[in-house]
């Protein structure tokens, strides 16, 4: 098993069918992730980052028209195994998910304990008292008092509810945890507390995270590797060191330029234009209509707007390959 990544995603595609046409939400995404590593999936809204999470945990909406590619978890393709087997052997047991705004989806008429032990009763067939003890241990691990099991969601603050959502994801001791914007509705100080918690849990339980966020600054709090998505494609992936110090893709460079910094002096820049429609995305590179290099370099005309750029290996200092899907580096 040594040397084999925990998760390998190969040419993953997920299309939605809508009344306006087929939305290519995730269109050929590949990456791998080692055990204990954290990958931040970064991109603007609508780029497909949450859809990747739904594909990995195999919980997608009913209007999905096509899912293809391979998701190898511990070397086994879990995207195409029997749904029942995935449910009993993988979902929550090995791959857990903290969905977006999950703190608002706690059941208001059940106590925290009752909803936390549900997966233990179902997956492990544990008895109720033992399960309750385990729930209390987990609450303690996320920094909540043990008697939180007897409380109802409305008695908790936003930060506490988010901690409960994280505890619920960890209760079956999964190996991979997908965190979809885990702090999006929280205040900055609460957010910093949750990030501290996630760092500590990663050390304690040797977790592997996929951290989905739109905030590059926040991503740097957890990420060992950063993948940037644009319009359903992964445009760049590399180690955090490479991505933050020498981003290569024009979109990543633009995104970095628009992140305000509190400490350093930096002039903010923005990318004019809009994210393209995923029903009729531009041919070739999806970023070319907004790309400053395409606009200024004549030799790129007829390439970027016609052929899709493959992932290209560029020089890297960090621990993993730095791949850029851009014709500039061919």
């Amino acid at each position: 098993m040594i040397g084999m990544p925990l998760l390998e995603v190969d040419n993953l595609k997920l299309y939605y069918s809508t009344s306006k046409g087929v939305v290519k939400a995730v269109d050929g995404v590949s990456f791998d992730l080692d055990e204990g590593e954290t990958l931040a999936l970064v991109g603007e809204s609508g780029c497909g980052k949450s859809t990747i999470a739904k594909a990995l945990i195999r919980l997608w909406e009913r209007n999905v028209s096509m899912v293809s590619g391979e998701v190898r978890f511990e070397g086994r393709d879990v995207l195409h195994i029997d749904a029942e087997e995935f449910r009993t052997q993988y979902r929550w047991k090995k791959i857990a998910w903290v969905p977006q705004a999950s703190m608002n989806s706690l059941n208001p008429v059940l106590t925290i304990g009752e909803q936390m032990i549900e997966p233990l009763l179902i997956h492990h067939g544990a008895d109720k008292d033992k399960a309750m003890m385990q729930a209390m241990d987990m609450l303690e691990a996320v920094g909540l008092p043990r008697d939180t099991v007897r409380r109802y969601p409305h008695q908790l603050s936003g930060g506490m509810k988010q901690r409960v959502a994280i505890a619920m994801a960890l209760i079956l001791m999964p190996r991979l945890v997908i965190l979809d914007e885990p702090t999006s509705a929280l205040d900055v100080i609460t957010q910093a507390n949750i990030m501290n918690l996630l760092k500590r849990l990663r050390r304690e339980f040797k977790l592997t995270y996929i951290f989905i966020t739109h905030d590059l600054a926040l991503a740097s709090e957890l990420a060992d590797a950063v993948a940037v998505m644009y319009a359903g494609k992964m445009v760049e992936i590399g180690s955090a060191e490479d991505m933050y110090t020498s981003p290569k893709h024009p979109y990543t460079i633009g995104l970095m330029g628009s992140v305000p910094t509190l400490r350093g002096e930096k002039k903010l820049t923005f990318m004019p234009g809009e994210v393209p429609s995923l029903i009729n995305p531009p041919t070739g590179c999806r970023f070319y209509p907004r790309c400053p290099y395409f606009a200024s370099k004549d030799e790129l005309k007829g390439i970027c707007d016609r052929d899709e750029p493959p992932p290209i290996d560029v020089e890297h200092k960090g621990s993993r390959r730095h791949l850029v899907s851009c014709w500039l580096y061919k």
């Binding site: 954290t38 920094g143 603050s157 930060g159 506490m160 900055v188 100080i189 609460t190 957010q191 910093a192 507390n193 990030m195 501290n196 760092k199 500590r200 590059l216 600054a217 926040l218 991503a219 740097s220 709090e221 957890l222 990420a223 060992d224 180690s239 955090a240 060191e241 991505m243 933050y244 110090t245 970095m256 992140v259 910094t261 509190l262 400490r263 350093g264």
Partner: peptide
């Protein structure tokens, strides 16, 4: 101010010194 990260790959190695509570 301590709670707000700047984009910096070394952030992941340190915890933020933050008060808890609401």
């Amino acid at each position: 101010i301590e709670a707000i990260p700047d984009p910096d790959p070394s952030n992941r190695f340190k915890d933020r010194k933050i008060v808890g509570g609401d």
